[in-house]
């Protein structure tokens, strides 16, 4: 098993083999996590620091549990309340933490590229837990694991990604991952929420939900990032729900066995119908959360192995 990377900054840097290696290892951690004794010593003696410059509940909890189950010493730093508010620059904060000799640094930051910048300045392995609208690699990996387990494969599937593509790092990482694994990708959303030049990414773009969902195997809904909107991308939430919210009628255009995904947290009644989100025959949203822990365990395990091999 080889995984020749110092950091996990994005899907862009990974090969199809890297992705498969990571998902295979994650599969074994799903098994571990389902046992009553869920502990391994893969990261015993290592220090993991979670630095979240942007609010997060589920991703931070997922990384924390993943680290603890592998025996790491995990520390959470709520960066919003800390020295960054006192005017310290990102690099100074990183250098300060670096001096405490962490082994794994999990970073979320509201600006694209900030995690790359930080990774250039520290000695430890850095995991990108989301940077601006750039990448969110562990989310794409957990989505991939969920799809692979539900569909039995991760290639030659037709996947629709729906909603606020422009502001979504989840969409970017998923487009890259699903493309590398040779799937057909359809992006659906209002043109105001579609990034420029997106058609050059090897995807099909639709602004009509029923056309876009035609015969797809997987429907990935995105959160409507209300906090990112500086106004005027869509006329109203209710018009958005009418045209782009996923409900049973729209889903009927997808394949009968199509699965429904959402990275959470959901705005029920804005981008997805609440009943559909809870439908255990269609929705794999809870599976995604479970896979998240396993994928993050696998990613940290692989990066830690590289560190000990290099040491």
């Amino acid at each position: 098993m080889t995984f020749a990377h110092r950091h996990l900054l994005g899907i862009e840097q990974l090969s199809a083999t890297d992705i498969t290696t990571l998902l295979d290892l994650a599969d074994s951690y799903v098994d571990l996590n389902r046992q009553s004794h869920k502990h391994s010593d893969a990261l015993a003696g290592l220090t993991q620091i979670n630095m979240f410059f942007e609010n997060s509940t589920r991703t931070q909890a997922s990384f924390e549990i993943a680290g603890k189950r592998l025996g790491a010493d995990v520390m959470n730093m709520a960066m919003q309340a800390s020295s960054i508010k006192k005017g310290e620059t990102l690099i100074d904060t990183a250098m300060t933490l670096n001096a405490m000799h962490p082994d794994l640094l999990v970073v979320r930051h509201p600006q694209s590229g900030a995690v790359d910048l930080l990774a250039q300045k520290v000695n430890c392995a850095v995991l990108n837990a989301g940077d601006g609208r750039h990448e969110h690699p562990t989310q794409a990996l957990l989505d991939a694991l969920t799809i692979r387990r539900a569909k039995g494969r991760l290639h030659r599937l037709s996947v629709a990604i729906c909603g606020d593509i422009a502001h979504s790092r989840v969409a970017r990482s998923n487009i890259m991952l699903l493309g590398k694994m040779e799937n057909r990708i359809r992006l659906i959303g209002p043109p105001t929420l579609m990034p420029a030049g997106i058609a050059e990414f090897g995807v099909e773009v639709f602004d009509d939900m029923t056309q876009g969902l035609q015969d797809v195997d997987v429907v990935m809904m995105l959160r409507l990032q209300k906090e990112r909107m500086d106004g005027g991308f869509i006329p109203s939430e209710r018009e958005y729900y009418h045209r782009y919210g996923l409900d049973a009628d729209k889903l009927a255009h997808a394949r009968p066995d199509a699965i429904v995904m959402h990275p959470g947290p959901m705005n029920r009644g804005v981008e997805i119908d609440g009943t559909l989100a809870d439908d255990i025959n269609r929705s794999v949203i809870q599976d995604q959360v479970e896979m998240g822990v396993a994928v993050r365990m696998a990613a940290m395990d692989l990066l830690a192995r590289n560190r000990s091999a290099a040491a």
Partner: peptide, 10 residues
């Protein structure tokens, strides 16, 4: 705006 800015999320 264009492919590169979209790729980098800028």
């Amino acid at each position: 705006s264009g492919k590169f800015a979209s790729l980098r999320g800028l």
